[in-house]
Nucleic acid binder design. Structure first.
Lengths: 89, 89
DNA sequence: GGTTGCGCTACGAAAACAGTAGCGATAGGA
DNA sequence: TCCTATCGCTACTGTTTTCGTAGCGCAACC
């Protein structure tokens, strides 16, 4: 799947995840992502904006309609991940 | 989510994806993944085995029961990804 | 004994990422 | 008007990760 080319890179999924239920400014987003380098954050945001999944509005960065749709499909994955994480400690 | 630490790295999702419906030998898996370096493949496989998602059997590498469960949750994501990829060309 | 395929390692070169400082723009208050 | 604060973002150096390639040790087969 071509989604892997986009999402199979460091920070990409994390950024989508952090934006899942709120708009965040560049700096706030950076803090949420363990203070990753602004250069990398900017590169990922450019890719995600280019892919039409994220957009920059008045209230900062937010998921687009498509980004939210993708986020919805991530939720069951998260539910599974939580059970998996709990199981393997 | 902690799954991101594992899956949010290059090749990890791709490897799971290639194993989704068949066992593959180390070398066959390597070919499917655009001939990625064996060192990286080995590192990812070690992580995935450590996470209990992949195991090495007589027929090569294959998803474990948990790995298959995760794969199931990837299918709707793939369906969405296909539509998304078609939409944005 | 030679060939074939297996999982895997070693190592130098290239690319990605981290860490930190700071720019230009905008807005608000003294 | 100047100071301060915050915004998105760039620049630059050093470390870490990944790539690319060669090849090892092992087993099976002829």
């Amino acid at each position: 799947m071509q989604l892997l080319d986009l999402v199979g890179r460091r920070w990409t999924l994390r950024i989508l995840w952090e934006l899942r239920d709120a708009s965040l400014s560049f700096r706030a987003l950076r803090e949420r992502c363990d203070d990753l380098s602004p250069s990398v954050l900017n590169a990922r945001l450019a890719e995600l904006r280019d892919a039409g999944l994220v957009e920059l509005g008045d209230e900062g960065y937010a998921l687009s309609a498509e980004g939210r749709a993708l986020g919805q499909h991530l939720l069951p994955l998260d539910a599974w991940a939580r059970r998996w994480a709990a199981r393997r400690r």
